[in-house]
Design a protein around this nucleic acid. Structure first.
Lengths: 196, 196
DNA sequence: TGACAAGTCGAGTCGTCACTCATATTTTCG
DNA sequence: CGAAAATATGAGTGACGACTCGACTTGTCA
């Protein structure tokens, strides 16, 4: 499940271990301070010299993208798990809720979605595999929910992704007084359901 | 309508003119590149030395806040104009549409809303006047729309602001292929209307 | 008009950050 | 075990951006 480097050569044992550590540290650091956090901080948290970080990820951009790709994979996992649930409608809406939770926990989480879901942004270019999986997973959730009569027929995947991004972004800075967030979700969900 | 400096002293003629130029240039520059754009660039665009920018806005933060406050004032203006319209429901929804237009045109426009509308963010602290006006204006639009039966009774201002922020943020990076944006607005509007 | 305060100018300071590279260390494998 | 290759280290480099300050210019007002 780890991010495999582009080269086919097998990594030395310590190198593989350090790569994992760096990636994990980056995930933490970026979750707290966003992708603007310094590479130094990532190295410190990983217990590794800064040169090591750059050996594995030659550019800060690549490090950020690797973390984002990991998050996309997590989202896809959750979406795929949900898409086997009995109640397709509930599963679809549950994914939204999960998204807001993750956005609150991780700085710049919405950026992941935005890059992967909508335009040909950075993640879309650097990790086409992951991003197309995400679109596919959301599309499946949506289609199943529509078959179950839980979501309007005229809604398509791009709209859903855009709404998700919006919700995620709003959640990112809504105070944890989530009464408001719950109400917002109610509103959006009502808009997504077939005419009452 | 210009941003008045805190001091009571009247500014010298050239100083007042330069202040305007700097503010206008900053509005442009930040609209294009976001608030991360350099102060140098603002000075260049204003046709002024960098020292002059710092004389009027001793900190980059203050410059950004001044621009944001100006945008909030513009929003309030539009909201107040709309709140005198005959069709209160249409006016309320028109404000959303206007918001997406502005967000597409101006980088970091949603941040303005977010800071002013929701939490006690930077703008809320530095320009309490403007931000409370915005909340009031949106509240008026909402109340009138509800009286007209165009919006669900159980929706409150905080939810509306949060939804607006989400929409604005999503609009900020949706490609100008706005078919999607229009559909998203449809969904949200349906969610805001009374049960069909 | 003259002189002084207010304002402008812009080269320079300081701090931060991504990124490099020569040296030291570790792993691997015959 | 003992190279040789891979990897780690971390002080150093260069670029950039916010902010300063002393010399210079301009507006104001008696």
């Amino acid at each position: 499940m780890a991010d495999t480097p582009h080269t086919g050569k097998p990594l030395r044992a310590d190198a593989r271990r350090n790569r994992e550590r760096v990636l994990a540290a980056a995930e933490e650091v970026f979750a707290e301070g966003g992708p603007a956090a310094s590479t130094e901080e990532v190295a410190r948290r990983a217990g590794v010299a800064i040169g090591t970080v750059f050996r594995h990820f030659p550019t800060k951009e690549e490090l950020v993208q690797a973390v984002f790709a990991q998050r996309v994979r997590q989202l896809v996992d959750e979406a795929e798990t949900l898409s086997t649930a009995d109640d397709a409608g509930a599963a679809f809406f549950a994914f939204f809720v999960r998204l807001t939770e993750l956005s609150i926990a991780k700085h710049a989480f919405a950026d992941v979605l935005a890059g992967a879901g909508i335009d040909v942004g950075a993640i879309g270019r650097t990790h086409p595999q992951e991003t197309s999986h995400l679109r596919a997973a959301v599309s499946t959730l949506l289609t199943r929910a529509q078959r179950a009569g839980a979501v309007r027929e005229d809604v398509r995947t791009p709209e859903v992704l855009t709404v998700m991004i919006g919700i995620a972004r709003a959640a990112e800075q809504t105070p944890s007084d989530s009464q408001v967030l719950a109400r917002v979700l109610d509103i959006v969900f009502d808009g997504l359901r077939p005419a009452r």
